[in-house]
């Protein structure tokens, strides 16, 4: 179901770069044409869905038809259980991401600004970030049970690394001439952080934040399925186990929509953080 969104983003990107190469215009697809393409894609996906559901390839009752799905969705969405599941997932996602930001950004900026610390930590960071959060689930469940706390710890483990790495890259992007300008005019260190280090690092941090936000959501839902922690993932798993395929699909689509919203918000944040960046200039003004 996320297929239409991917298609739409590709179109957007093509539209943004094309006028740069061909200032005479004509390369940029019109809004109408884009809308038609998106609608067409959605129709195709829905048609494929309906064919897959009715053909019986995936066994009886395992893939609901569009009609069954729709009536189940109308039934499920107004219930309290549905919104509690969303809240459980999103609250632990938000707390986990916030903790990651609070840890990774100061630590990353510190590591990035000291070559000694960078050399010391690089192998460790590279090692740790390749460990998938999911394989730590048994250990975390053993320690904390199937709780939100366990979920948050694993979310932090998944999202702290991209943020940390981006913070390290961000601080290293500070121009020597800019640093010397600040030194020459005796700018105090508090103002250096505020007007030099953070602004230079902000595009990197925004990218890290987007990657971490998406990774956190995937990990949250995955853990809920595996470890039966409360949330959307738990509902997907439990409905599917009880043969309630349509209900399981409602939660599945909900997870996809949440993913889209999170991506949309953090892509916008990233664009905002880069208003001054050479790659963005002129496209907004």
């Amino acid at each position: 179901m996320s297929a239409p969104a991917v298609g739409a983003r590709r179109d957007q990107r093509g539209g943004r770069t094309a006028p740069l190469r061909r200032p005479s215009a004509g390369g940029r697809p019109s809004t109408l044409r884009r809308a038609v393409e998106i609608v067409l894609l959605i129709v195709l996906v829905l048609a494929a869905w309906q064919i897959a559901a009715t053909s019986g390839t995936f066994g009886q009752n395992s893939w609901p038809t569009l009609g069954v799905f729709w009536s189940t969705a109308v039934e499920t969405v107004p219930t309290q259980a549905y919104w509690v599941a969303i809240a459980n997932t999103m609250v632990s996602w938000a707390i986990g991401l916030t903790i990651s930001v609070l840890i990774a950004i100061p630590v990353g900026l510190l590591i990035g600004s000291t070559s000694f610390l960078r050399r010391l930590t690089t192998p460790t960071v590279d090692f740790m970030r390749t460990i998938p959060s999911i394989i730590l689930v048994p250990l975390a469940v053993l320690l904390y049970g199937s709780t939100n706390q366990m979920k948050i710890i694993l979310i932090v483990f998944a999202s702290v690394w991209p943020l940390l790495l981006q913070a390290v890259y961000g601080i290293r992007a500070v121009e020597p001439v800019a640093r010397e300008t600040f030194s020459a005019y005796g700018v105090r260190w508090r103002d250096r952080v505020r007007f030099l280090y953070l602004p230079t690092a902000s595009p990197y941090l925004a990218t890290g934040l987007r990657l971490a936000a998406i990774a956190s959501l995937l990990v949250a839902i995955g853990i809920e399925i595996i470890a039966s922690a409360p949330g959307i993932g738990y509902q997907i798993g439990v409905k599917q186990a009880n043969g309630l395929a349509a209900s399981s699909f409602v939660y599945l689509i909900t997870a996809a929509i949440l993913g889209l919203i999170v991506t949309g918000i953090f892509t916008a944040v990233e664009r905002r953080a880069m208003y001054w960046h050479p790659s963005r200039r002129g496209t907004n003004s």
């Binding site: 001439v177 010397e180 020459a184 005019y185 005796g186 007007f195 602004p199 001054w276 960046h277």
Partner: peptide, 21 residues
């Protein structure tokens, strides 16, 4: 350290001026 009564102008204005300010 850089004296307080001294100002500097660099060749590379695109880097000595902060693009976010």
């Amino acid at each position: 350290a850089p004296p307080e009564r001294l100002a500097l102008v660099f060749q590379d204005y695109s880097r000595s001026l902060m693009p976010w300010m």
